[in-house]
C-alpha cells in the first residue's frame, strides 16, 4: 500500500512519503529549519562574504566543540535506551573517569604514572588507555548489577550515580592534580588555525556507532533485545551479554568524553561537572527519535537531536534569554519532538 505513494514522482509526493514513513526525515527537517533560523539570527551585516563566513563558521565551530562530549555520551545512551534501559550514572562516571585520568597524568608528586617513572608521551597514551578501560569497567559494573542482579536499570544506575560521584569527591578532597600541557593537546591541537579535535572525535565515534547499529550482529541484537526480550532470547541471543556490552560501551564512551573535557580545561569540578549530563544525553536521543520503550532508535537521529539542542542553546544565547530560563526551552523542545513522533505512530 505504501509503495503506491512512493512511486509518485512529484516532489510533494516524495515529501509526503518521506514524512510519513522515514522516521528521521521530520527530525532532519527540524534541524534544517533550526540551521536556517540560526543563520538569520546571526545576520548578514558584514562587509564581505569572507567576514560573514568567518563569523558563521566560528559560531558553528564553538557550538560543535562545546557539545562534543555530551554528543559522544548521547551516542552510547542511544544504545542503552534501545535495549529498554537507561543510564543515569553518566555524569558521575564522567567525574570518576576524569579524576582517574588526572591522578594518572598528574605532574605533581602524587601523580601515579610519575611515581613509577613514566612521563611524556608514554604517560599520555597510557593514561588514555587506562582511563578508557576504567570507564569500560565502571559501565560493566552497572551492567552486572542490571543483568546478574536483575535490578531495574533506573535503580542500578541511580545508585551508581551517587556512589561514583561521592567516592570521587572523597578521594579527590584537597588534591589538585596538575595536568601537563602536552595532555591538553588532545583537545586543543590545532589543524590550520582551528581547534577541531573534539569535533573530529565526535564524528569518528558517531561513524563507528552508526556502523555498529546498522551492520553488526551486536548492533542488531540490541534492537532485538529492546523490541522483544523474550523473543530475542528464544532466537539464540544471549540477552545478558548484549546488555552487559551496551553498558560497558556506555562507560567507555563516557571515559572518552572525560578525557576530552580534562584536556580542554585541565581541571575538573568534581561536585558540579557532569550534573544533568544524563538528561542532556537522554534528551538528544529522544529528540532524535529513539523510543524510551526500547527497540526503536537511531544513531543518526541522536546526532541530529544533539545538533538541534545545541543550536537551540546557541539561539537562546544569541537572543539574550536569561540563563536560568534556558532549560525551559530545552524541556519544551524535547516534549515537542516526542509529540511530533507520537502523532505518526498512531
Amino acid at each position: 500500500m505504501s509503495e503506491n505513494v512512493n512511486k509518485k514522482r512529484s516532489f510533494m509526493g516524495w515529501f509526503k512519503y518521506k514524512w510519513n514513513y522515514d522516521p528521521l526525515f521530520s527530525i532532519l527537517i527540524a534541524l534544517i529549519i533550526m540551521i536556517i533560523l540560526q543563520t538569520f539570527v546571526l545576520g548578514f551585516d558584514y562587509d564581505s562574504f569572507g567576514s560573514w563566513w568567518q563569523a558563521w563558521s566560528t559560531n558553528w565551530m564553538n557550538l560543535l566543540r562545546n557539545n562534543a562530549g555530551v554528543a559522544i555520551i548521547a551516542l552510547g545512551m542511544t544504545f542503552v535506551i534501545m535495549t529498554g534501559g537507561i543510564d543515569l550514572s553518566v555524569g558521575a562516571t564522567l567525574v570518576a573517569t576524569g579524576a582517574f585520568a588526572m591522578m594518572l597524568i598528574d605532574v605533581g608528586e602524587r601523580g601515579l604514572l610519575g611515581m613509577i617513572g613514566i612521563t611524556g608521551v608514554t604517560a599520555i597514551i597510557l593514561t588514555i588507555i587506562l582511563t578508557v578501560i576504567f570507564g569500560y569497567f565502571l559501565g560493566m559494573l552497572n551492567g552486572i548489577v542490571i543483568t546478574k542482579g536483575m535490578v531495574p536499570p533506573f535503580i542500578a544506575t541511580l545508585g551508581a550515580m551517587m556512589v561514583f560521584r561521592s567516592v570521587t569527591q572523597h578521594v579527590m578532597q584537597g588534591y589538585n592534580p596538575r595536568v601537563p600541557t602536552e595532555f591538553l593537546e588532545i583537545a586543543s591541537f590545532k589543524i590550520g588555525n582551528l581547534m577541531i579535535m573534539p569535533i573530529f572525535y565526535w564524528a569518528i565515534i558517531a561513524a563507528i556507532m552508526y556502523f555498529i547499529s546498522k551492520r553488526t550482529t551486536f548492533g542488531r541484537q540490541i534492537i532485538a533485545v529492546g523490541s522483544n526480550e523474550r523473543a530475542a532470547k528464544l532466537s539464540g541471543i544471549n540477552v545478558n551479554k548484549v546488555k552487559l556490552r551496551v553498558y560497558s560501551l556506555m562507560g567507555l564512551l563516557v571515559a572518552i568524553a572525560a578525557i576530552i573535557q580534562v584536556s580542554r580545561i585541565g581541571s575538573m569540578d568534581y561536585a558540579g561537572a557532569g550534573r544533568g549530563l544524563e538528561m542532556d544525553a537522554i534528551a538528544a536521543a529522544v529528540v532524535g527519535g529513539t523510543s524510551m520503550m526500547g527497540g526503536r532508535g537511531f544513531i543518526l537521529g541522536t546526532v541530529y537531536g544533539m545538533l538541534i539542542i545545541s543550536i537551540l542553546n546557541n539561539l537562546l544565547n544569541l537572543f539574550g534569554v536569561p540563563p536560568l530560563l534556558r532549560d525551559a526551552f530545552k524541556g519544551l523542545i524535547v516534549i515537542a519532538a516526542v509529540l511530533l513522533q507520537r502523532k505518526k505512530d498512531a
Binding site: T217, R220, Q221, I223, A224, G226, S227, N228, R230, A231, A232, L234, S235, G236, I237, G295, R296
Partner: peptide, 25 residues
Amino acid sequence: PRNRKENAIIHDMNILENSSIATWP
C-alpha cells in the same frame, strides 16, 4: 515458540532480519 507475537516476532525488524536473527553470528 508458542504465542508468536510475544515470543517470536521482533516487530522493529524487517522480514529478512526476523528470518535470519538466529544465524547472524
